[in-house]
């Protein structure tokens, strides 16, 4: 008979709380990189330089169709070959940030493309600068359709942080594996990690859908 050892759970609680903080830090840091990089990637695809557009487009496709795990290894191990040693945290944040940056650039692109052509033409007709066209006309309208995708990927990046454990980022998964190796108990640590992820991602998904509705209402786009 297998028994669930509650005392082990209480013993591990402080370590797991600490690790959960690091998981959230990794997700938040990675997302911050992704939000900005995604913007760079989408704007680079809207310039007049065809070759730049093509190169960025292919880069985004490459990132989106290859495993994040492989990209994490790539970033972590390729640096040292050229004398650039990255810490697990740096390499992990870069990998996850670039991965989700590529996904977010597609979300932004969808948002921007959903703005009717007439809006661009009208902005041009009243002689708005490109910066002002984006800031005052395009982005306010592109945002509501993009918010839902951005929210999904925020939860997505959080759920992908366990992959950083493979290069030694001491987040939840790494901690659970370490506990398993020390105590030969896998039931409690892995179940606890699962429960912590559920406890964070389900409310987060709910809050994001509330936020999405709030954005739509604030911008006067809710029917």
């Amino acid at each position: 008979m297998i028994e669930w050892r509650w005392h082990l759970v209480w013993e591990l609680a402080p370590r797991f709380t600490d690790a959960a903080g690091k998981t959230l830090l990794a997700a938040g840091g990675g997302y911050a990189i992704a939000v900005i990089l995604g913007l760079v990637l989408v704007l680079a695809q809207r310039t007049r330089f065809r070759s730049l557009t093509f190169a960025v487009r292919e880069f985004v496709e490459l990132i989106r169709s290859t495993p994040l795990l492989l990209q994490v290894f790539f970033v972590f191990y390729v640096g040292p070959q050229f004398g650039l040693v990255l810490s697990p945290w740096t390499a992990g944040l870069i990998a996850i940030g670039v991965h989700y940056g590529a996904y977010l650039s597609e979300v932004y692109r969808g948002g921007i493309e959903s703005v009717p052509a007439g809006q661009w033409e009208a902005a041009k007709a009243i002689n708005l600068s490109a910066a002002k066209t984006y800031r005052r006309i395009v982005i306010p309208q592109a945002l509501p359709p993009a918010v839902s995708g951005m929210g999904n990927y925020l939860v997505g990046i959080f759920k992908d942080t366990p992959m950083l454990s493979v290069i030694g980022v001491t987040e939840l998964m790494h901690t659970a594996t370490a506990v398993g190796a020390e105590s030969y108990r896998y039931l409690e640590p892995y179940t606890m990690v699962g429960a912590i992820f559920l406890a964070i991602s389900l409310p987060a998904a709910y809050l994001i859908s509330r936020f999405e509705k709030w954005v739509r209402r604030t911008l006067g786009m809710l029917k």
Partner: peptide, 23 residues
């Protein structure tokens, strides 16, 4: 659906591989 979408694939993989044998 909520359990599998709310946690990570890696957690599920390890759970199936390391925890199920305990049962």
């Amino acid at each position: 659906v909520e359990i599998f979408r709310g946690t990570s694939l890696l957690i599920q993989l390890f759970w199936i591989f390391f925890v199920l044998p305990i049962f």
